Amino acid sequence: MRQFKNPTWINDIKFEYESFDQIPAHVFDQINRDLDKVQSKQPLVSIVMSAWNEEVNLLRTIASMSRMKTKYPFEIIVINNNSQDRTQDTMDRLHVKRLFQPKQGCGFARQMGMEHAAGKYILLADADCYYPSCWIDEMIDVLTQPDVVCVYGRYSFISEKGFPRWKLSLLELMKDAFAEIRHIKRPYYNSFGLSMGFIKEYGMKIGFVPSKWRGDDGMLCLGLMKYGKIKQVRSNKARIWTAPRTLQRSGSFSQVLKERILIEAKRFKGNFNNKMPKDLSMQDE
């Protein structure tokens, strides 16, 4: 069912702080108590998250993950990707596995996280998103199906001024429709690191593209195709939620819609051929 309002479970973790200095100690304490209850020392699943200048957003993301309800033991790994703000201070106050990658780029950070992961399965997440409590189960239930090596989920945008939920819902409906078409032959164009999972054994054989540019997630998916199936997790309740920052760069909602339609129109025919891309640095979220 398409949501025309922001989900209510986000409300009490949508912290309105603007900097690390504003975060009260009791907020960290509560999140850590929850993290201690849900994380395992013998994880089957490792959540790998690259963070660059996300000192407050990271708090919101980890707060959502601390409320996971899952049958799979898991750990959270956060990689500070050479942040220039106080992301490291936020990380140091949270009960998660912490790494530092001085080389700029998600590919470098995610590769480090994968190498340090204890789990058999890797879930990629972003440090500026909200994750529903069912996310792990919905993703891993599909990833553990026969011959599946990689999965990706869907995402929605939180409404903000100029971007009401009813308009965003229409955009997401269009986005999901095009994703279904791309999935037939080009699922790697749908595979974003904000909600993606794979088997570590095969991920280590492929590795992340060592680049500062985008597309490392899609290129990993492309490489994994030779080992098994890529599946889409279509469950709407497993959608992750994020602010419309990428949309706001394009201007108004009408400008965003026009831009997205033009992009999809240009590459529509390509969705039906088997030509493999050299890189996915222009991959769109």
Rank of each mutant, 00 (worst) to 15 (best):
N6T: 13
P7C: 06
W9V: 02
D21I: 03
D21L: 06
D21G: 04
V27F: 06
N32T: 08
L35F: 02
V38M: 00
S40C: 07
P43S: 09
S50V: 02
L58W: 03
R60A: 09
R60W: 03
T61P: 07
M68H: 03
K69E: 11
T70M: 06
P73L: 07
P73F: 06
E75N: 11
V78C: 07
D92R: 10
L94S: 01
V96L: 04
P102L: 09
G105I: 02
F108V: 01
E115I: 10
G119V: 08
A125H: 01
A127N: 04
Y130Q: 04
Y130G: 03
P132H: 06
S133D: 06
S133V: 04
C134G: 09
V149I: 11
C150M: 05
V151A: 05
F157H: 11
D176S: 09
Y188S: 10
N190M: 08
L194D: 08
S195I: 13
G197L: 05
F208L: 10
S211L: 07
G215S: 14
M219V: 10
L222E: 14
R234P: 07
R234K: 15
I240M: 12
Q248P: 04
Q255D: 14
A265H: 01
R267C: 13
L280C: 14
D284C: 12
